[in-house]
Amino acid sequence: MGLQDLLSFIEQYGYFALFFSLWLGIVGMPLPDEMIVMSGGFLSSLEKMSVIKAFILTYLGVVSGLSLGYILGKVFGHKILDKLVKKKNAKHLLKSKELIDRFGHFALVVSYFIPFVRHIIPYLVGMNNMSFKKYAMYSYTTGFVWTLIYFTLGLFFGKHMEYISALATRYGIYFGVFVAIIGCFYYFYIRKFKK
């Protein structure tokens, strides 16, 4: 499916096409999630969709798809992971494990900015019995920020979606680490301020 097919699909089926395209991303939609999210912003800029409705359903699609991965990891564990490794490259699994070893729970934050890895990390933390409350705290907050960034890029720079998506695929990890560092500073600053 190309960009024009995606835009036609979303125009034809509306808001729920945004939701289901992202929700199905966990099982391997052929387009990058960044491009799907930016499509919602782009079509909103053309007044083919309401900005608020498109953003909300886009965000819900992102977090529900990744939550499905968490639940599958928690319930089925290695059975799902084995199929995932066969379907996707094993290098993404190794990268995901390295992120968890290096960043712990913050791997959920950083992983949003790394294509493919963002879909594997929820399986792994689900398998490792992270509580859903903790998962939701990290994943849903970062998901909101991530969705807001790419939706806004689509809103203002939608004609350059393919180029932006290629940059995000190539350099997303650096952006993710930057966001994680800012988040840590903010968190510790708030804790210090409250004392």
Rank of each mutant, 00 (worst) to 15 (best):
D5V: 03
Y13L: 08
F16D: 09
F16N: 15
F20W: 09
G25P: 06
V27P: 01
P32S: 11
I36C: 03
G41H: 05
F42G: 07
L46S: 12
E47G: 04
K53L: 12
T58M: 04
T58Q: 12
Y59L: 13
G69I: 06
G69Y: 03
Y70M: 01
Y70N: 07
F76P: 06
K79H: 12
K79M: 12
L81I: 06
K83N: 15
K83S: 10
L84P: 08
K87L: 14
K88Y: 15
L94C: 00
K97L: 14
G104E: 05
F106G: 05
Y112H: 08
F116P: 12
V117D: 01
V117N: 05
H119F: 04
I120N: 04
P122H: 05
Y123R: 07
Y123C: 04
L124W: 10
G126N: 03
N129E: 12
S131L: 00
S131C: 05
Y135F: 15
A136W: 08
A136P: 07
T141P: 11
T141L: 11
T142A: 15
F151I: 06
L153G: 04
G154P: 05
G158M: 04
H160D: 15
H160M: 14
E162R: 10
G172I: 00
F175L: 15
V177H: 08
A180N: 11
I181A: 14
Y186R: 13
Y189Q: 07
I190Y: 14
K192Q: 06
K195Q: 12
